Computed example of a mutant assay.
Amino acid sequence: MAKTDDLIKRIQDNYTKLSKSQKIIAEYIINHYDKAAFMTAAKLGASINISESTVVRFANTLGYNGYPELQNALQELIKNKLTTVQRLEMTEETDEIAILNNVLKADIENIKETINEINKDDFRRVVSDIINATKIYIIGSRSSIVIAEYLGFYLNLIRENVSVVKAGVSDVFEQILRVSENDLVIGIGFPRYSKRTLDVLKYAKSQNAKIVTITDSLISPLTSVADEILIAKSNMASFVDSLVAPLSLVNALVVAVGLREKEKIADTFEKLESIWDEYGVYFSKPN
């Protein structure tokens, strides 16, 4: 299938050959793509008094293998366009237990899709990149900073010279000023993608650093400068970004790096355990 961002163009190119009912569907999608993206074929048809089978035939006419593929294209299309307010307005469910079920099921599906779609060779290469880098910079903006901080916390227990680049007293460019060709920069970004993250990656690329991106799609803008790409699905169930699959991917990276460096980090963790006991960092186990 072609890039999902050509959906509107597909509709425009095929408009004259559509039936009268299909033209109604096309116009509804163009004008209400934010709502249509989360409707089943039956619900979309019901909203404009057209049969479900006509909606399915419309998807086929546009070259999609059924309505689910068209719906995926719609969801990809809106990732960069919907504001948080619009996402909130799309959430029609009000029953708390139904919301709980829907969100957990969506996160489970994101993890399943990540397992199926991630490139295993790329994953192995990124583990090697982390181990071999002189210095590691991790950049993530907005909600992605949560993943960046998490990855940075654990990599700092395994490796030296790991820095999480984030807004603060100094600008992000000042923090990454001395990046060089022996360094690794890990850029993390999910819809709505942060332009600042991409700008930092472009600067690092200009300094010949190796770039790894952790993102949700090969058409993510962060992939334009990447040497290695790790895909983790983050399809949203509502106005809140889904970070479950990205965090699982980061967990896997940390474990894989740690096991490669198992002997080297054993002393580090023994020393940490001693410090934690001495200063009472954790509650003691009951006798």
Rank of each mutant, 00 (worst) to 15 (best):
K9N: 14
K9E: 13
Q12F: 06
K20E: 15
K23W: 04
I30V: 13
I30Q: 13
H32L: 05
D34W: 12
A36P: 07
K43S: 11
G45K: 03
A46P: 12
S47I: 11
S53M: 04
V55H: 01
V56K: 03
V56R: 00
F58S: 03
A59H: 09
A59Q: 12
N60I: 02
Y64Q: 07
Y67H: 04
P68D: 06
E69I: 09
L77K: 10
L77M: 12
N80E: 15
K81R: 11
E89N: 14
I99Q: 13
V103W: 06
L104T: 01
D107W: 04
E113S: 12
N116R: 09
D122C: 09
R124E: 09
V127N: 08
A133G: 05
T134Y: 11
I138S: 02
E149L: 09
Y150P: 07
L151K: 04
L155K: 10
N156G: 14
I158Q: 06
R159S: 08
N161F: 10
K166V: 04
D171E: 13
R178N: 15
R192S: 05
L198N: 04
S206T: 01
K210T: 05
I211Q: 03
I214W: 02
S234W: 00
S234A: 08
S234L: 07
D241N: 13
S242R: 01
L243R: 01
L247W: 00
V254S: 12
K264V: 09
I265M: 11
K271F: 11
K271P: 10
S274E: 14
E278M: 13
P286S: 06
